[in-house]
Design a protein around this nucleic acid. Structure first.
Lengths: 156, 156
DNA sequence: GAAGATTGATATTTCAATCTTA
DNA sequence: TAAGATTGAAATATCAATCTTC
């Protein structure tokens, strides 16, 4: 049987390019980072969130807001980081329901190392290819699309 | 502790926008498609590959080439589609190692329905936001980046 | 009752064997 | 020995409870 196409070929191509690029890019970056430092991209994202946070500490909810993740995913991600000694958990003073996560010295070192390598790969695979004002063009498009998809505030 | 940034803020922003956009877009599309038809985006991709294939049939390897997936992921994805009656498997005539997958009538109907809804959502969330020659700008950027990340041929 | 966080069950991905045929 | 496909085990993601405190 056949099917009457619903998108123009050129539209389909752009959409598939977008999906493919994201897939191969994150796969490459994840592979390289894992091989060189043992960290996953998600782990690096958490560590980055902690590095930029006051006192290098965040509540679970805040960590979640920095990520692309679901709530429960965060709990388990932090579990792994804690098991590996990169972060520690503690109770929040004025809210007994809350827990926070702090970076350990080891976590800081691993982040510095991982971030350097990750950024190098990112420059090589992503930023190096832009010329002229393409980066700005892309920024404009991404911003507009993002507002469309997540109208309110799906945080950082 | 603090950390000396390795990327300019503007660069970080573009990269994070790209990741966030992909995450929210695929999440929204997947949710809507699942709610309305019970299909996953991956399932729809397989069905699309079969629709466009001669005789609506493909070998496992060929299915894999159409997807963003790993080999073993394909086996299990097809398992689920077969369980739901959307495809069937059979032996390849001239190569006893090979297996092929064919679309069933039910699979065709579910694809038509799913594709219509998926494309509507895609237009609304993605294509609707482009103006002027932005789609072409994006295409140019994506193509160049893709060639950089997957130099040889990581297929369609 | 709602918010913050965790847990158990389940679905999906990924990796390294495995098994059969080329 | 390599190609095609599957399988088992382990890692990770997702969903619906659950438990505690607000």
């Amino acid at each position: 049987v056949r099917h009457r196409p619903l998108l123009k070929k050129s539209e389909r191509d752009v959409w598939r390019s977008f999906l493919r690029l994201h897939a191969s890019l994150t796969r490459r970056l994840e592979e390289e980072l894992r091989a060189e430092t043992g960290l996953s991209l998600s782990a690096l994202e958490v560590l980055w969130a902690l590095i930029t946070a006051p006192d290098n500490r965040l509540r679970m909810t805040e960590v979640a807001d920095h990520l692309v993740f679901t709530r429960s995913g965060v709990t388990r991600l932090i579990d792994r980081l804690e098991r590996d000694g990169l972060v520690t958990r503690g109770d929040v003073d004025d809210d007994l329901r809350g827990r926070f996560t702090v970076l350990t010295p080891l976590g800081f070192d691993r982040f510095e190392d991982g971030a350097r390598k990750h950024v190098a790969a990112l420059r090589r695979l992503f930023f190096a290819e832009f010329c002229g004002n393409e980066l700005d063009e892309l920024r404009a498009i991404l911003d507009r699309l993002e507002r469309r998809v997540s109208p309110e505030g799906t945080r950082t």
